[in-house]
Design a protein around this nucleic acid. Structure first.
Length: 164
DNA sequence: GCCAACGTTGGC
DNA sequence: GCCAACGTTGGC
């Protein structure tokens, strides 16, 4: 039987006031570099595990209400986050060098709007999503893997089929 | 605005 | 290597 790469799904958080799903949707090519991530676990997911074409839930944190706002996909291989070298950027990291960059990012491309915004409260109320990283108490990871069965349930709740 | 939970820093 | 202090995240 031919071996196909496992489907991979992710969730990324963004504060809508800082960079909303609609902003990504309107960006050139509906694409942006996911820069500014300064957490090692989140970085490792981007630099070691993400593959082009992986599905991404675009989550609005600190929103009113917080929730899943749209779908995206991984649109590039990992590459060094340029903001770590920019002294005028709040994410500048003086300890990082171009020879050995500390922080990496990928590009994300918006792939579809949801028929409706999916509030966090609805995710919490869905028993099939128990165990989802996002719903864990105190979960702060801004880039996190999503299990395929959770991905399917989220899309179902949002009112769309499994196909992008 | 509050505050619990978390990750990082730095003194020892 | 421990762990207290600190800064940040993010729901409410």
């Amino acid at each position: 039987m031919p071996e196909t790469p496992a489907a991979r799904y992710w969730l990324v958080k963004s504060e809508p006031d800082v960079y909303s799903f609609d902003q990504l949707w309107r960006a050139p090519g509906r694409k942006t570099g996911w820069d500014g991530v300064r957490n090692y676990q989140a970085r490792n997911f981007m630099s070691q595990q993400m593959r082009v074409g992986d599905g991404v839930l675009y989550y609005h944190s600190s929103g009113q209400p917080p929730g899943v706002a749209g779908l995206a996909e991984v649109a590039s291989a990992p590459y060094p986050d340029p903001t770590q070298f920019d002294p005028r950027d709040e994410h500048c990291d003086p300890a990082s060098t171009r020879a050995a960059p500390r922080w990496f990012q990928v590009d994300l491309r918006a792939t579809r709007r949801l028929p409706r915004f999916l509030p966090l409260a609805e995710l919490r109320a869905e028993s099939r999503l128990a165990g989802m990283e996002l719903l864990r108490r105190g979960s702060r990871l801004s880039v996190q893997p999503v299990r395929p069965e959770h991905w399917r349930v989220v899309l179902e709740l949002a009112g769309i089929s499994d196909r992008n």
